[in-house]
Write a protein that binds this DNA or RNA. Structure first.
Length: 147
DNA sequence: GCCAACGTTGGC
DNA sequence: GCCAACGTTGGC
């Protein structure tokens, strides 16, 4: 999961009660499908800082609630409002994530790109998506790089 | 600031 | 359905 640290950083998440947040605002169908269909209770999730000086995976979360309707799309005053989504046929979904651990050593995008085993990572392949899948093998490599 | 790689919009 | 124009994301 990507977040711009200037908007919402991993440190911000750690400061929240229960270190838990509802991940709303995803408004891309491919990202939504990964989020809604691919994330299961207890799954580990990497937290990635995008559009920062050093884009990097900075920590780990876990899914504490699986995909459910993102009601922010229904509110005309909300920045994530989408008139095409309704309670009758919702388009957008969210999950709840809880921070598990901050990496002692962030794993930068440059390091990820330099590792052959990670060359096919969706994060690298489809860089603009805010939600991308991580394989078990990729997960282990990055955990190793984080120390 | 530039660019790639999309997604979206709307005319036809 | 096609395509041009434009918007968005995010790395560099």
């Amino acid at each position: 999961m990507k977040s711009e640290p200037g908007e919402f950083s991993f440190e911000d998440l750690l400061r929240i009660h229960n270190k838990t947040t509802s991940w709303d605002g995803v408004r891309n169908f491919a990202a939504r499908n990964f989020l809604r269909d691919g994330m299961k209770l207890g799954d580990r999730v990497f937290f990635y800082h995008s559009s920062s000086d050093t884009p990097a995976v900075v920590g780990e979360c876990e899914v504490v609630r699986e995909g459910y309707v993102d009601e922010s799309a229904f509110d005309p005053t909300h920045p994530y409002f989408d008139p095409d989504s309704s309670r009758e046929s919702p388009q957008w979904y969210r999950v709840e994530l809880r921070a598990v651990a901050q990496f002692t050593r962030p794993v930068t995008l440059a390091e990820i790109k330099a590792r052959r085993e990670l060359g096919q990572m969706a994060l690298v392949r489809i860089g603009r998506l805010s939600v991308t899948p991580v394989t078990a093998a990729e997960y282990e490599v990055i955990r190793g790089m984080a120390g």
